[in-house]
Amino acid sequence: MPIAEPLDPARARRIAVVRLHVNGQAYAVAAPTHWTLLELLRYQLGLVGSKQGCDKGDCGACTVLLDGLPTLSCITLALSAEGRHVETVEGLGVGGEPHPLQRQFAERGAAQCGFCTPGMLMSSAHYLDELGRAASPVVRQQDIAAALGGNLCRCTGYTKIFEAVQAAADETCDRARALADGPGGAA
């Protein structure tokens, strides 16, 4: 969607420059003041991984991490992201390697149509972040279900999503333990 549209003088719109970090990269992006963060990501930065499903914050397909927290980009103003850090599904893998969540989702059939998947992955990634920060992490299915409570999936019945997040979470815990037990670890 072009920013430069024919201007009706009666509807003159404001365009602002938003400075933000997206997936670790600093950007200055021009966006009309009434645009959402989702529109900025999809239309201005070409980051089409974040999806629009419900228009108004009901489904979670647009979930990104804003300063590390799962956030609905379809009801976040683009200007609200000024000076902040946004992570989208495009930034989840590192150096071409899929994130453990992406690998587990793929292997375990946790995505069918895949449309909710980017948002689901971002909520899951936050769950893993929290888990990794916990002093003694415990993986519980009810915590996983609660963490995904704002992401609707219409294909899977969530079963394989729970399995995939659980498997990735177990990996996180194993890594945390290995780190703690290994040379130079706290032990």
């Binding site: 509807r11 719109r13 404001r14 009434h34 200007l79």
Partner: peptide, 9 residues
């Protein structure tokens, strides 16, 4: 998608 109307921020 459902769009916001124009406003200032």
């Amino acid at each position: 998608m459902l769009r916001l109307p124009v406003f200032d921020v």
